[in-house]
Nucleic acid binder design. Structure first.
Length: 116
DNA sequence: GCACTGACGCGGG
DNA sequence: TCCCGCGCCAGTG
């Protein structure tokens, strides 16, 4: 079984263009629901070059402060095609990633086979 | 071993 | 909507 960090990186690599995921989703997809905080810590460690696709519950850019400049994450998200609402909130309705059954199955299989 | 801390989530006020 | 408190897990002193 891949470790949590490896799973986080893998899941992030599967997030489609124009879509964003929440820490909670990320943790759950990695097999550890209720560990959103852990997911946040892992992401901040730089395991993935797509950390900007990760947002807090409700689409809040809770990690924006960790980027080089304030507002950078929002810009990266826009550049990716993610729709933002006023106050730098991600419109989860339009741009929140909702894994399809196929994608979920693919993740499960990958984890089981230790793919990375 | 214990207390503190963090890119969090959720329910309440 | 914002702020607070509590729960969660792992790294650090």
């Amino acid at each position: 079984m891949m470790d949590f960090a490896a799973r986080v990186a893998y899941v992030l690599s599967r997030v489609p263009e124009g879509k964003a995921v929440t820490y909670g989703q990320l943790a759950a997809l990695c097999g550890k629901p209720l560990c959103a905080r852990l997911a946040g810590r892992v992401v901040s460690q730089g395991v993935s070059p797509r950390a900007w696709k990760v947002v807090g519950a409700g689409g809040r850019l809770t990690g924006a402060a960790a980027f080089l400049t304030p507002g950078l994450q929002a810009e990266l998200l826009r550049n990716d095609g993610v729709s933002l609402l006023p106050r730098d909130r991600v419109d989860l309705g339009k741009s929140g990633w909702v894994p399809t059954d196929e994608e979920l199955a693919a993740l499960k299989t990958a984890f089981a086979q230790r793919e990375i």
